[in-house]
Design a protein around this nucleic acid. Structure first.
Lengths: 158, 158
DNA sequence: GTCTAGTTTAGTTATCGTTCTTATTTAGGA
DNA sequence: TCCTAAATAAGAACGATAACTAAACTAGAC
């Protein structure tokens, strides 16, 4: 799976824009690391990116790859699959269920929905495979955080 | 967040059933570790479970907690949040998108669906918070694996 | 109740992904 | 071109997790 060149160029242009907007230096390493991720239609891990970039920049260090990937994540230029930088969390609820994650406080809450359980691949993506079970993660602001936000705002307005 | 006692008892009963069905001994430690996870409506990490169990079984070792949690996972008595035991994977596609994960080969494929992007909390769970964005992960068998499964079955039938 | 195989503990060590430290290099502005 | 803050390379360090040991323990079969 390769990203078409046109799309890759678009992404590289965006990288340059975002870096200068944020006042961050455009180094050879950063460019090549991003090119590696942005050019693979896949979901590479840091090690894979490292091996790929090393073919073009043999002196690159794994540390630089990690630092750069987290930088790109902060800038919103890449994302991660699943929760990153978190230890494994266990869940004794084995019924099919879904999660709501508060993007403010990080709290994860379960909820149930048979409709969500049975979601299948949408038309056009059906040829990828056959669905067995769906898990939905909704990101948003939990009621508690929304409350304290409102309180905070009221305090400021006075 | 605490699990109601009735539900906890149901889960403990299931633990006993599954352990004897699998011919695995029912030890005090296993019971207490499971009770800790099953009794917390939360999503504790191994360390949290360890601290909780240690209050009741002070001699417990962290090693036993890990061994038992993975055992419970293998038995399907607990699950994990997100991909466990996997390194962080990066994704240069910053458009909203969803994933199809093949439970046979582990391959993760992207797909797009504006309908999925906009999923909100279902009725009855709306008071949890306000949704901002949804991510759907569909688990199933990819077309490639389905093909080789069929081939395998044909070979056996001959 | 006895036996035994499976389990736990404690302690040590290994591994793996990731991060830190420090000396060196470099991008980009003056 | 020169300067300096920022970035890098190398390898040591780190934290979570896993493996291994030997000795003690115990659940469940007989």
């Amino acid at each position: 799976m390769k990203v078409p060149n046109e799309e890759l160029q678009r992404r590289l242009r965006r990288l340059r824009e975002e870096l200068s907007a944020a006042g961050i230096k455009q180094t050879h390493q950063r460019l090549e690391i991003f090119r590696e991720v942005a050019g693979s239609g896949d979901h590479p891990c840091a090690e894979t990116v490292y091996r790929g970039v090393r073919r073009r920049v043999p002196s690159i260090s794994l540390d630089t790859v990690y630092r750069t990937l987290w930088l790109l994540l902060d800038l919103g230029l890449v994302g991660t699959l699943g929760r990153s930088r978190d230890r494994t969390r266990f869940d004794a609820d084995t019924r099919p269920h879904h999660h709501f994650v508060c993007s403010r406080c990080g709290m994860t809450m379960d909820f149930y929905s048979e409709e969500f359980d049975g979601l299948g691949l949408p038309g056009g993506a059906g040829e990828i495979g056959s669905a067995r079970r769906a898990r939905v993660e909704i990101e948003g602001i939990c009621a508690d955080c929304a409350r304290s936000d409102r309180k905070e705002r009221r305090r400021k307005d006075e």
